[in-house]
């Protein structure tokens, strides 16, 4: 197993994809940004000045301190503080954990559902295909944020509920892409060869179909992480997303929004900017992957 992994790695290193990746400033910039973002989310709490959830570390006399170079600011809280004296930078670091977790796990869940349904529809065809694809068509005729809001108001707030809502919103894209790719891969002679060997359908799907639709799935999944972070931010901003005890970036924006026009802009703007940076980096990487791996998806 380790040997075959190494072989795959060597083959990746020798590939055109790797050569293009190394020479693409966009790809390198976005990967670097994403690495920093991930690093901050994982290890950030080690250097933040406080734990924003630990009420004993907050000091109300620090409330609404402006960002660092301005008058009356505290260099320890260089992005300023909110009404409870909470450091904005610390809040962003902790909030990005929730946002990234929801984005990544949400994509894993909804790609699993979408890939499963898409492969079934594409490989077996017939009434199953019609059923799944008509369901997808119906769902696509509603804006996804509307469906997500409806689901969240039915399910109630909570990280788990946001994940369920995202899964039910996002599977359609995966199912449609995977179905289309499966239809074209299924006609390849190597699938016929597998059938001539006598391999059962589940083995053909796992060994022959899925590995050959994987590139499209990787591209789509990357882009979808950004979309999901945005949807979650929207939901939380509207008060339909995560609970107050696990604030995400969207919720931080929402909190600060109330005082934004009183001149206390930093409470809302810094978390907002951070969402922009995350989604921007993910989309840049997604664009690069799409151009390299599957230009058909454009």
């Amino acid at each position: 197993m380790a040997n075959s992994l190494k072989k795959q790695w060597d083959s990746l290193k020798g590939s055109q994809f790797y050569a293009h990746y190394r020479r693409s400033p966009v790809a390198l910039l976005s990967s670097a940004l994403l690495l920093i973002i991930l690093f901050l989310a994982v290890f950030g709490p080690l250097f933040t000045p406080q734990n924003p959830f630990d009420l004993s570390s907050l000091d109300l006399s620090n409330a609404y301190l402006p960002p660092y170079p301005r008058e009356g600011s505290d260099p320890a809280f260089f992005m300023g503080t909110d009404q409870q004296g909470r450091d904005i930078f610390s809040a962003i670091v902790y909030g990005s954990r929730t946002s990234l977790y929801i984005g990544v796990v949400g994509v894993l869940l909804c790609s699993a559902l979408g890939i499963f349904l898409g492969v079934l529809a594409g490989y077996y065809g017939g009434w199953l295909d019609s059923l799944i694809m008509r369901l997808a068509d119906i769902q696509l005729s509603f804006p996804s944020i509307l469906i997500a809001m409806f689901l969240m108001s039915a399910l109630g707030r909570g990280v788990g509920n946001v994940l369920i809502a995202l899964m039910l919103v996002g599977w359609v894209k995966f199912a449609r892409t995977v179905r289309g790719e499966t239809l074209s891969v299924r006609k390849m002679e190597y699938v016929d060869a597998a059938r001539v060997i006598g391999l059962p359908s589940h083995r053909i799907i796992l060994r022959y179909i899925l590995p050959n639709v994987m590139t499209s799935i990787i591209v789509l999944a990357t882009m979808q992480v950004g979309t999901f972070i945005l949807i979650e931010a929207t939901l939380s901003f509207l008060g339909l997303g995560v609970p107050v005890t696990e604030p995400s970036l969207g919720m931080l924006c929402s909190d600060g929004f109330k005082v934004m026009f009183g001149g206390l802009w930093w409470v809302s703007v810094f978390p907002g900017l951070y969402i922009v940076v995350i989604v921007f980096a993910i989309n840049l990487l997604g664009d690069f992957l799409r151009d390299e791996l599957n230009p058909k998806l454009k």
Partner: peptide, 21 residues
């Protein structure tokens, strides 16, 4: 029968799974 009867395909560029050694 799958062991007794086999097939050689027309297009060598499509008849081998690109993801398998």
């Amino acid at each position: 029968l799958h062991k007794q009867m086999q097939m050689i395909f027309q297009d060598p560029y499509a008849s081998l799974n690109p993801r398998m050694t």
